[in-house]
């Protein structure tokens, strides 16, 4: 029983990371209709920078904020290249973000090398209902929950958030009322970058990061996001948590080698069922 509770909380912590990556994907897709393949790279860049800043003696909190800021900056840069040129179709932008993801490899290996890195997070062991687990998992949850609440408030209750939602809801009408949809797209990329960065900064103390960790992150993030058709952040949150818990349970009860398959098979099933229900998924290009 205490095993199960331990796995559940660990799984929620891991899943929170996926959910943050997924919500970044959703934030960008809703506004721009671009699936950002470089989303996992934001997490890696943020984690690597945080490890350097901590090693340089910066206190916790400041170093992590630095990492998230780099994620946001990387998001903005990806946005400028991917959607900055007028008339770039979402399909073309997807390939551009793929290229930028590979470019991030070059930058990361150049600066940080190709060996796994990590940094200490919240140290110590916590005891929850008889289960003992690293306290850092609780910190992940304690940060992720308010971040999602803040996002829900931002998108529904602030004028800037409403303008972003408006671009997602009806792009043409957004232009009619004078919203600069390209600039909103860049803002969405920046938010997506920060969310990806936060995922990397939060999960690295319990999971090492290497330059190519982004593949795992983007695949899990996409799997979580695709549950809600890439447009619903709260379903992406639920999907991410579900994936994290399932994978931890599978690993905990002896299927460690098949953790990744859980996300992959779920993602394939969801997409195929969605396609069967709605007919062929329309082309992204438009």
């Amino acid at each position: 029983m205490s095993d199960l509770i331990g796995y559940l909380i660990t799984g929620l912590g891991i899943g929170a990371g996926f959910a943050l990556v997924a919500s970044g994907l959703v934030a960008i897709y809703r506004v721009t209709r671009v699936v950002n393949f470089a989303q996992g790279g934001f997490a890696v860049l943020a984690a690597l920078l945080t490890s350097t800043l901590l090693a340089a003696g910066l206190p916790h909190g400041v170093a992590e904020l630095g990492g998230v800021a780099l994620g946001a900056l990387a998001g903005l840069i990806v946005g400028v290249v991917a959607i900055g040129r007028p008339g770039t179709s979402p399909g073309t932008s997807l390939i551009v973000t793929l290229g930028l993801g590979v470019l991030a490899y070059a930058v990361e290996v150049l600066i940080w090398g190709d060996q796994p890195r990590s940094f200490p997070g919240l140290t110590g062991v916590a005891e929850v209902a008889g289960a003992r687990l690293p306290a850092h998992y609780l910190l992940i949850l304690a940060v992720t929950a308010p971040v999602f609440a803040l996002m829900a408030w931002f998108f529904a209750r602030t004028d800037l958030g409403r303008a972003l939602t408006a671009c997602a809801s009806n792009r043409y009408a957004a232009q009619v009322v004078g919203i600069d949809v390209r600039r909103m797209g860049l803002l969405a990329f920046t938010i997506g970058g920060a969310l990806g960065g936060l995922a990397g900064v939060l999960t690295t103390p319990v999971q090492q990061v290497t330059f190519d960790s982004d593949v795992t992150l983007i695949v899990n993030g996409f799997a979580a996001a695709v549950l809600g058709g890439l447009t619903r952040p709260m379903i992406a949150l639920a999907g991410g948590l579900l994936l994290g818990v399932t994978q931890t349970l599978v690993a905990g009860y002896g299927g460690g080698a098949y953790q990744m398959e859980v996300a992959l098979v779920l993602m394939l099933t969801v997409m195929i069922v969605q396609a069967a229900r709605t007919g062929p998924v329309p082309e992204t290009a438009r």
Partner: peptide
């Protein structure tokens, strides 16, 4: 047969998923 019902980024991610599954199975 199942995958080609998908289009665009869905197909891109599906083919990526297939490769990751294959690599993981091969490794085991």
């Amino acid at each position: 047969a199942p995958l080609l019902r998908l289009r665009g980024h869905h197909l891109a991610f599906a083919t990526l998923a297939v490769q990751l599954i294959l690599l993981s199975l091969l490794a085991q």
